[in-house]
Simulated scan of single mutants.
Amino acid sequence: MTADITLLQGDITTIAADAIVNAANSSLLGGGGVDGAIHRRGGPAILEECREIRRTRFPDGMPAGDAVATTAGRLPARWVIHTVGPVWSAREDRSAVLESAYRRSLEVAAELGAASVVFPAISAGVYGWPAESAAEIAVDTVRSSPFDGAVTFALFSAEMLDHFRAAVVAQNRNRGGNPAG
């Protein structure tokens, strides 16, 4: 069984789910983009737990490709799963690290007992990952994961949504499924 994937354009901080994935930086202390929005909307309880995780588990910062969970604070979710995606590099293939960010997030979701997870397009913002490649890696990794809950990709632009739709169609075609997604 594979995850049921839903795609939508929208603000990840407004979508109800068991877990919302934060495209965090290694400090886990907030930042710009999705990370900043999640910390602002979720409130200080998220930052408090992130500080404790930094103090006890990752004093030098969480490595790219890993994931941890905190409360969701005031978000419409039970948990926030923080993952650090890689910065895009034309000289070094970091695809395995991006795959790991999705895979580890789903492993953490399963450990928590989450039945629904909402992802942003990890690394496809300020970290510069090309949209088409980011979408392909995200969809392929989620579909190959043993996680069997509902997965939603909340994408920040119509263009990113189009890349994810194309990745779902291509993946369905490759698996012999319904090309419409």
Rank of each mutant, 00 (worst) to 15 (best):
S123Q: 08
G65Q: 10
S144M: 11
A16K: 14
P146S: 04
S145I: 05
V151Q: 08
A124C: 04
R94P: 05
P120R: 14
I15C: 04
R55S: 03
S105Q: 09
A23M: 02
S95M: 06
G32D: 07
A167S: 07
S145L: 03
A45F: 14
G33W: 05
V117P: 15
T71E: 08
F147T: 06
A101E: 01
M62Q: 04
R91F: 10
S89L: 08
P59C: 11
A154D: 04
M1D: 14
P86W: 05
A158P: 03
V168Q: 03
T70D: 02
P59E: 08
F119W: 12
N174F: 10
E136Y: 12
V126L: 15
T83S: 10
G42T: 02
A19D: 05
A150G: 14
S105V: 13
A138M: 05
M1S: 12
E111A: 15
A121H: 06
L155T: 04
F119R: 08
T70K: 04
R40V: 15
G30A: 13
M1T: 15
R57I: 02
F58Y: 12
G176E: 05
E111I: 10
F164R: 08
Y127C: 10
D11A: 01
E136H: 15
R91L: 15
A115V: 13
S26F: 11
A134Q: 00
E52W: 06
T13G: 15
I12Q: 05
R74I: 03
T2Y: 09
V117W: 12
S145D: 05
W88M: 07
V21S: 01
I137Y: 00
E99A: 00
